[in-house]
Design a protein around this nucleic acid. Structure first.
Lengths: 105, 105
DNA sequence: CTTGCATTTAGATATTTTCCTATTTAGGAA
DNA sequence: TTCCTAAATAGGAAAATATCTAAATGCAAG
């Protein structure tokens, strides 16, 4: 509870959750969406994971994170999100990167 | 959203919400539950109010705060709370002060 | 208009958070 | 082993937060 709310009280961390809503990603993939150094992203991911909001899976030397959909705080967050103005910007950001990637391949 | 999560990411502020769940209170009444200087409490209340989580009403020189039950983030919080271990402690605290007050009057 | 009480604002300090660069760990491939 | 890449950790500077005491504000009563 404490951890979940602290984790969600950060814009970069909510943006990470939002990107992961589009599917699992490696740390590097997540970092590529941000104009922020990798260790900072890694730290944010660790906070989210420690709060039980992310699942972690290793594949070779990569670490894949995904939303812990079973987590209650997470469910509430995704329920709440569409009602907030902030959500539009986040959705747009997610959509944009997906289209760019599809178009660029 | 930003403000609501930041507001909820603090133990004293969640405790304030919990106390207010028992009914509206003045700033002084809220402060009496805490071992913390009045200005600090006042600040916490201001954060909650600014996040839209509290309603504010003046009665003479007193200011009465109450839970903004219509607020979405608030609803989420009160829904989520009973599922968390933290909730038991909060409920016990609320119950204790109510009994003490009733017994002491 | 002065006094008294409830609340808020100001200003200072200590702690926590955030972010960076540099380094370390771990895995896969030559 | 040695090299390369992905991710995490270490250490430190800057910004935000929390808390206190002291002072200001607002309101009501005398």
């Amino acid at each position: 509870m404490e951890k979940a709310f602290k984790a969600l009280a950060s814009t970069p961390r909510r943006r990470i959750l939002n990107h992961l809503a589009g599917g699992p990603m490696t740390v590097g993939e997540i970092a590529s969406k941000f104009d922020m150094a990798m260790p900072s992203i890694s730290k944010h991911i660790a906070v989210l994971h420690d709060a039980g909001l992310l699942h972690r899976q290793k594949r070779g030397q990569e670490v894949i994170y995904s939303i812990a959909a079973d987590n209650l705080a997470n469910s509430m967050y995704s329920f709440l999100t569409p009602f907030c103005p902030e959500a539009r910007a986040l959705a747009a950001e997610r959509k944009l990167t997906r289209e760019t990637e599809e178009g660029g391949e």
